[in-house]
Nucleic acid binder design. Structure first.
Lengths: 325, 325
DNA sequence: TTGAAAGCGCTAACAG
DNA sequence: CTGTTAGCGCTTTCAA
């Protein structure tokens, strides 16, 4: 209701001084600071964000674009991201797309209109060439490997990580290996397929299409997969499951059906999520929390120094051995 | 990058004229409109939202506060809400609290700082007396029954709805009835308990505490409940489950275990969510979509006419008979 | 330490 | 139909 001028009058100081105490600037006498604070409290004053944003040219808000957020994968990523954002007085605006390109574009547009200072994309539908056009309005960071010069990128090398998983299983004597992924058309899925095919080639095994499962995101998807596997005449002896949530579904369902893990079916999960620890699931940790942290830092760097070259940062993964292999 | 003045210069018109075409106002000659549009396209111009918001005193954004949004309950509510918001050129800012009162307060504060024009609370941790203090900064609408003069309220009469469910089951001959709720401490849970106790009193049945289940939100919770029930020596013959998602869990798990529905166990769900249709689940529809629509309208009314008295609107529920009873 | 004053980019009377 | 002009509320030189 009240504005900065009224506070200044009430406290018998200039608006500049009020602004100074508002922003914790030095060079304000204790006496005046006290008076200003009192006046603000008395008036129940809160500064108008829109005015602040207009005057400063920044909003202290970063848009985090993701398809949905009800998944441990995004929790881990967001955890790191927000932790880091907080350190720099930034707050995250959740931009949920539900895989709708129009929604995605709406959020990209917010960069143009200065509603957010930058964008971190945890997922995307639009082509990068399209997205890059918005980079002129503010930093854009992708949580996957992107070549574009204007887009920073913090990512896992999914080919390597998947190959590591395959070789680990192969090293344990497995030849009949299947795998589960989330969406088919993502870049990471392509990389995983390539690693899978290459690994099989190394051991001269044929590629068995029925052992590849798509759409594995939630626990229930893992249950579905295990049921399919159980019904097969020729079953794989090991499964690489991208996402511990789904892997947990596979594992619990298997136990339910009396299929012993790892003897009859070995499982390697991904992400080292809390549930994998609880279930003693062997998993490949891609350090999502760290990806979140680095993604924010990449944004922040671009923000502070717009001239800087966009970062391309590969985050190392790690195999966590437990008892599902 | 460019601002409205530069566009005006480029198009050889005044800034007012540019503003007019920007906002689709009448009284602009076709000739000038064309010139302005061309200049905007050429410059890749987008208006600065913060300036617009500051000048107009509104943001066209409404904050929707909820604990999490990965549940059909909130989908339905949000669906109606956003549909209505769209009609009035409003966009919803999802404010996820994870049941953390500090987060909630942060969102309430956004009303003070004019980051949003109003707030719709689908859930809350802070006491209403506390929340009401923020109502001076903009309309606040609750999706539950609230007495506070400054807070509009769009709600289901949970006591009546629950009683309706109980009497329906009783009418079908049931005497041993249990129920499942989400959180224990919500107002709706208290109402439900009251209706439950009253209904049992009507038929002179003792209240059996072990037949009351809390924390039933997801499908998995329903599974858990059914497993508990199956293990009981003295089982209820019917269950009132607030939330079709959980009810679906109860139902599928029961079938899995060979417990026949409705013969050995009758189930009444709540919300008439898509899954209940698929499973032929009898359910009480509280018209969540409509609650969302009305909640936005309540906000919009308060917005347009700040003098108006806050609305208290009870939305009728409806029993949808299918085959689980 | 302090304050006057010039913006930030846009809207909306008001006067033609 | 069009333009002038005074804000919206805050930050930030700049000079004192």
């Amino acid at each position: 209701m009240a504005n900065i001028r009224e506070i200044a009058e009430a406290a018998q100081v200039s608006v500049t001084t009020v602004s100074r105490v508002l922003n914790g600037h030095p060079y304000v006498s204790e006496e005046k600071r006290r008076r200003v604070e009192e006046a603000m409290k008395l008036a129940g004053y809160s500064p108008n964000s829109n005015a602040v944003h207009l005057a400063t040219g920044r909003t202290g808000m970063i848009g985090v674009v993701l398809p949905f957020n009800h998944h441990p994968y995004f929790h881990a990523l967001l955890g790191g991201l927000m932790e880091e954002a907080l350190k720099h007085q930034y707050t995250a605006l959740l931009c949920q797309t539900n895989y709708d390109p129009r929604e995605e574009r709406r959020y990209l547009h917010m960069l143009r209109t200065k509603q957010v200072d930058g964008l971190i994309l945890c997922s995307h539908e639009l082509p990068w060439s399209d997205i890059a056009l918005y980079a002129a309005s503010g930093p854009i960071v992708a949580c996957e490997s992107v070549q574009h010069e204007q887009i920073s990128s913090v990512y896992t090398n999914h080919y390597d990580a998947f190959l590591r998983g395959m070789r680990y299983l192969i090293g344990r004597g497995h030849r009949k290996i299947g795998y589960c992924i989330g969406r088919r058309n993502s870049e990471s899925s392509r990389q995983r397929y390539a690693a899978y095919a290459d690994a099989l080639r190394e051991i001269n095994q044929p590629l068995q299409p029925t052992w590849i499962f798509e759409g594995c995101v939630h626990l229930s998807d893992g249950i579905r997969v295990l049921d399919s596997v159980a019904a097969m005449a020729d079953r794989p002896t090991a499964l690489l499951v991208t996402g511990d949530e789904a892997a947990a579904g596979v594992l619990t369902r298997a136990r339910q059906l009396g299929i012993s893990i790892p003897e009859q079916l070995a499982i390697v999960g991904f992400d080292n999520q809390p549930i994998s620890e609880a279930l003693r699931l062997t998993t490949i940790d891609q350090h999502l929390h760290e990806i979140g942290v680095q993604a924010f830092q990449a944004f922040y760097n671009d923000m502070v120094d717009p001239e800087a070259v966009s970062r391309k940062m590969e985050i190392p993964y790690e195999l966590v051995e437990r008892s599902s292999v």
